[in-house]
Nucleic acid binder design. Structure first.
Lengths: 155, 155
DNA sequence: TCCATTTCCTAGTAAATCACTTGGTAATTA
DNA sequence: TAATTACCAAGTGATTTACTAGGAAATGGA
């Protein structure tokens, strides 16, 4: 899993699309304006998203982008994987004998953790995020935060 | 949260240190050999880790690095934050009026998700990873994987 | 005391990535 | 026909990545 700023832009843009795409397509110009991301950079990101069928484009006046499937069927992991092409980290893909014992043990641990992070993000959908926020704003503005204290250093 | 390859190197190196540092310090030369990371790059990473007191260096022959605290007190988030300096993503730090409604709503959603990812990684310690693997190898080699199926695309 | 070992420190670098600009073409609507 | 929008390709300055080079400071053993 690779969570770069590029992935953040994509997630942010997809969130904007999910929120504003209820009635009719959303133009990249609108998302660009809303989120402060350059139009051409959005075009690049959406080219990748379209390849993975996460969005669907409609050309011409009144056109724009729709979600490619329902917000509940699009996970955060889907979005990030679409724009941040997956790179295999450990050179030994489990197969090659990578200098044996200690090294591959660490690689296994890392791979497990990596899978866990992926699954965590795979289990959060765009729909989840939108609903979660709607519930929140019903209650109050921004007081409650489910995310409590980590262990110590939060900066 | 920013999970780059740099963070991966740091986590991998710290895992190696946790595994091999039971009796005596571990040299960067060993970690470099084990994990296939250049010595000088490790030095840079460990400079950052030392600043956050996640490791403790001992100079001279027989020297090397110890964990700065127990493996249970070091979270994956700690490690990643030490080497991948935190960057504020949304320009409006919640305070500035960032063109109002739709934009800040998306930002709030993103910030919540971001916190959630951080807390997820903050709740996994080096000790967890090591123990998890010991249990696994007791059972069998590599057959079971707790991380089951995500939704669809795993590549 | 001298030497080997190791951390610690600074500077530089090729390659990749990031976020963006420029300059288009193709499809669609009015 | 003209405006609007997605789509496409090439290039660019700034930053990051992973690394090399060349040391200095501390420590242990001879």
């Amino acid at each position: 899993m690779r969570l770069s700023t590029k992935g953040r832009y994509a997630v942010t843009a997809m969130l904007d699309l999910a929120l504003n795409g209820k009635n009719g397509p959303v133009t990249l110009a609108e998302i660009s304006e809303n989120q402060g991301i350059s139009l051409s950079y959005l075009e690049q990101l959406f080219a990748a998203l379209r390849n993975k069928e996460l969005v669907r484009g409609v050309r011409g006046p009144g056109g724009g982008y729709y979600l490619g499937k329902s917000a509940d069927e699009i996970s955060i992991a889907n979005i990030i994987c679409a724009v941040d092409e997956w790179v295999e980290f450990t050179r030994c893909g489990g197969r090659q004998n990578c200098s044996g014992g200690a090294r591959c043990l660490t690689h296994t641990l890392w791979d497990d953790l990596s899978s866990e992070i992926f699954n965590f993000l795979a289990n959060i959908s765009l729909g989840d995020l939108v609903r979660r926020n709607l519930n929140k704003t019903e209650d109050e503005e921004s007081s409650l935060s489910v995310v409590a204290n980590a262990d110590s250093q939060a900066a």
